[in-house]
Write a protein that binds this DNA or RNA. Structure first.
Lengths: 366, 366
DNA sequence: TTGTAGGCGTTATCAC
DNA sequence: GTGATAACGCCTACAA
């Protein structure tokens, strides 16, 4: 380790460039930053010196002086998740195109960790942040991000109490349409399979699900809402498929849950159960039957977020944007299976006191 | 934008801490860095001042002085690829645990871009690099990474001409075992479906495939090796399934190719074709039939690489490590399908002059 | 159009 | 054990 990098020529500084070009440090600085007026002849001489020496400005000296870093920060819950991976790729591409480094961090396992991570990024004077709020209540963290602070865009989930740009997908509408699609096939007993119910996206999708049921005059049955964790995978669907009024269709609230449902259905050999997945996944169209999905576009999400962020960084001023990305229903087969038994009893026991019983068709605005 | 961050208290500096504690800045520096001897009483007074002021060292000033950054760089081909996403997550976790930021960059679309990215990272004085070499011939880039330069670990593919730690998976053995597995079911016509053949991992897997064939006395038929690109997906398997001696089994050389094969087989309804996938993917066990895979562990790869890197960063000196991670064959059904027709003619036309015709069983050491 | 002086917040060198 | 003081490389005044 000791003599490492001994033969490597030391990186040149402004001073050396200036000496070689026969000008002052400041002139070189002007040329490098394109600021102020420099005579064309001087400039070209400086350019030449820069080229021969291979000069590159020292980022730390610059950051120390200017108080900012040519980087943006990205905080994501879990980058291993294919959804966030694709989003991250889009952010990385946009950042690199803008000449900014991307400093990337996981949100950790607690609000404290998440706060520490964001603080760390801010302390490094990143130009902006792309944040997927996870455990941290940003509104109460006193972080000075967003409008009036360090540019920040919240992605996938909103951050209550913070004025900042937000990029979400239309979870309510997606949940509504997926459910309406199954209702249209004649299903009345539709199970909602999801992971942790405390998560924003899931709650919203559940809202859409309930609205669709209500609009169709189908009673909401809490027994049909099944959380999914690693621990209950083995008998995930047991409850909803048992009893005298079993589910005839499934709506899985995200890719992880979908894959669990696919596995479960496959294991028990119930390919006649209708199924819609919220979120597409690689082999969805190669399964038997191919899986109908409500598709979001994580890449678009990342691009939209970074675009907003770059505009903020450039100094543009506009009211907090709230971009709502569409969810597209892609029928592939599994969602177009009709119920095996006639609609059943439950359709008659409609939701009790509800005057607004519009027909499905015009989904509510989320 | 103008009055942004006006109400925010300025970040405290060493000087202010020193003033509050009634000591010199150097003493505070000593306490912060745990360097040199400081009297316990002074130290505690300084600690207190640090706490009340919420002091944190300015990373740029520090980096300017020390010439290094508390960060590692990660260059990956495509972070959207689930394989690299999982790897990245492991690297990110390890980095964060070590108190290092992770600066993340895509390799871009050309050797020049890749070089620029790595240079950029080096210029930022990262402590180390995790690199998935892509288009850049590192050996000829004159980069001073690895032993004797900036600590670097190459992952997934080796970098010719560079002395550095490397973490690979045993592609040859994996290809061998996957092929041998199909041979053991009686298959003699096994197609090898892969993406770009210029890629290291693919070449190696192909080597394993050929060795397995050779050891089984089965002639290698170049017509059974099919590249896969986006453009030929529609009729990916046409050629190998046509003719009078069609393939009865498939080996897909990576997850992307596997998914294409799954789709293709599904589309043409040939579920009786045996199939092994190099690389696992989320729904592999939920397909019909469930897909037998040769599984690698991207998380382990990331962890191993970062562990090596951190040891280098800590100053440990040891000869370049070459870690070869295992590939595990996971039989699930698709790979255990026997050929529908008897082994066929081709088995007789064995590889011409090959004295070493060992039986399959003991795979070659990669 | 160009140059000089000073300081950004740290760490390193030396005295005390 | 502790403290002045000089860098690190750059940018922002201001002066010429």
């Amino acid at each position: 380790m000791s003599a490492a990098r001994s033969g490597v020529p030391a990186v040149p500084t402004l001073r050396e460039v200036a000496a070689l070009a026969g000008v002052s440090i400041k002139t070189v600085s002007r040329v490098v930053n394109g600021t102020g007026d420099v005579a064309a002849s001087t400039a070209s001489r400086v350019e030449e010196a820069i080229a021969t020496l291979g000069y590159r400005p020292n980022p730390f000296a610059r950051s120390l002086r200017t108080g900012r870093d040519d980087a943006i920060g990205l905080v994501v819950e879990s980058i291993g998740d294919p959804f966030f991976a694709e989003m991250t790729e889009a952010v990385a591409a946009a950042a690199s195109e803008a000449g900014l480094f991307l400093i990337h961090a996981g949100a950790g396992d607690s609000a404290e960790e998440e706060l520490a991570v964001v603080r760390g990024l801010l302390h490094r004077s990143v130009r902006g942040l792309v944040l997927v709020p996870c455990l941290l209540p940003y509104g109460e963290a006193g972080l000075s991000v967003g409008i009036g602070g360090v540019p920040a865009v919240f992605v996938d989930r909103p951050a209550a109490g913070v004025r900042a740009d937000t990029v979400l997908i239309d979870n309510v509408r997606g949940g509504y349409e997926a459910t309406a699609h199954l209702l249209a096939q004649g299903h009345r007993r539709i199970a909602f399979i999801g992971t942790a119910p405390e998560r924003f996206t899931l709650r919203e999708r559940l809202v859409g699900y309930r609205r669709a049921l209500e609009d169709a005059g189908v009673a909401f049955d809490p027994d049909l809402v099944v959380p999914h964790h690693r621990t209950n995978e083995a008998r995930l669907l047991e409850a909803v498929l048992a009893g005298e009024d079993p589910a005839t269709a499934m709506l899985a609230a995200n890719a992880v849950a979908s894959i669990a449902v696919v596995r479960a259905l496959h294991r028990i050999g119930r390919s006649e159960i209708a199924f819609v997945s919220f979120d597409d996944f690689p082999t969805a169209d190669a399964l038997t039957p191919p899986v109908t999905v409500a598709r979001q576009d994580p890449g678009l999400m990342g691009r939209s977020a970074t675009e907003l962020l770059l505009r903020r960084i450039a100094g543009e001023d506009f009211p907090p944007a709230e971009i709502l990305l569409p969810v597209t229903l892609v029928p592939r087969g599994s969602g177009e299976i009709a119920p095996t038994r006639p609609a059943g009893l439950s359709a008659c026991v409609a939701t009790a006191p509800s005057s607004r019983r519009r027909r499905r068709g015009a989904p509510p605005s989320a």
